[in-house]
Simulated scan of single mutants.
Amino acid sequence: MNDVARLAGVSIKTVSRVVNDEAGVHPATAERVLAAIDQLGFRRNLSARNLRRGSSTGTIGLVLEDVANPFYSGVTRAVEEISRLRGRQVITGSSDEEPARERELALEFCSRRVDGLLIVPAGVQHGYLLPEMRAGTPVVFLDRPAGDVAADTVLVDNVGGAAEAVRHLAAHGHRRIAFLGDRPRIFTAAERLRGYREGCLRAGLEPRDDLVVMGPHDERSVAGVLRRLEGLATAVVTGNNRITVHVLRALAGSSRPRPALVGFDDFELADLLSPPVTVLAHDASALGKAGADLLYARLDGDVAPPRRVVLPVRLVARGSGEVRA
């Protein structure tokens, strides 16, 4: 502001009045100040301004696993749309499934005095947020619960969805159904594995450890898993959209018999493949909206006990999961 004041030939107080749209500045003087601001590329610090006034900083923080994942893109878009209507901006970061990175991002956002936080947790220890929560910063956890703090949480029906996938495949005659999941320490992966096992028991199938593969997956590792499962499994349930895509890539051009396939999470163009991919669909935008609604309710003064919202999952039959054994 000193540079702007010198260039415009006015006092710092006059610059402050122009920047904050206060009365009492002659129009010609205001024009000189605005011209100086444009020339110098000056941008006012809204966060600092609002902190001095003891009001909102106009921002919320959103910590995701990976903003490049189409599912989380849908979550982000929903949060942005609701925040825009509430006059706030969204600051977003990817944890890359690393608890240390999640903590770093969350605390960085807090240091910028965001009004609230939405977090897809990568870890299970969130005590580091307690000082911020006690100071009045609301926190809502998405897709997975917090490990050791009580807070609003929005989940999807992971167990019910995976069980429905097994039921659907068993109804088409499959008795040897494999499950390919993510790291078992991840809440959604563990819950979907639990649902798979429950689905097997409900269908009269004994869960077999040799048909379950958990852990990090890429196209090469998935191709190896499918080769190993050949002759063992006639159907596969995949634990997330990325694993489903790796399976499809591994099967492309292969002469091996194609197993029946049901994937958890829908994904773009799934309905245009041959055969179209049967999925367990849940609305990413609904997850983002539900989380944002909870957060803004807290910002509006809601002091009710923490809520736990579970969103439904539905099986969309398209062809890949309807192959008879």
Rank of each mutant, 00 (worst) to 15 (best):
N69L: 11
F71M: 10
Y72N: 12
Y72K: 11
Y72M: 08
S73Y: 07
G74N: 15
V79W: 04
E80P: 01
E81D: 14
E81V: 11
I82A: 10
S83F: 05
L85Y: 11
L85M: 13
R86V: 10
G87S: 09
R88A: 05
Q89L: 14
Q89C: 06
Q89Y: 11
I91K: 15
T92M: 08
G93D: 08
E97L: 02
E98K: 10
P99F: 02
P99R: 02
P99E: 02
P99N: 06
A100G: 15
A100F: 15
R103H: 06
E104L: 12
E104C: 11
E104D: 09
L105M: 06
A106G: 07
A106Y: 14
L107E: 13
E108C: 11
E108V: 08
S111K: 09
R112M: 11
R113W: 12
R113I: 15
V114N: 06
D115N: 04
G116W: 07
G116M: 06
L117K: 02
L118T: 14
L118E: 11
A122L: 12
Y128D: 13
Y128M: 13
Y128L: 14
L129G: 02
P131W: 08
M133R: 08
R134W: 02
G136W: 04
G136D: 13
G136N: 06
T137S: 10
V139M: 07
V140G: 05
G147L: 12
A151F: 04
D152S: 00
T153N: 07
T153F: 01
V154Y: 00
V154H: 02
L155Y: 05
V156F: 02
V156K: 05
N158E: 03
V159A: 13
G160C: 08
A162W: 02
E164K: 06
E164P: 04
L169F: 11
L169S: 05
A170L: 00
A178S: 02
G181A: 13
G181Y: 00
G181D: 02
G181E: 03
R183D: 02
R183G: 05
R183H: 09
I186R: 01
F187I: 02
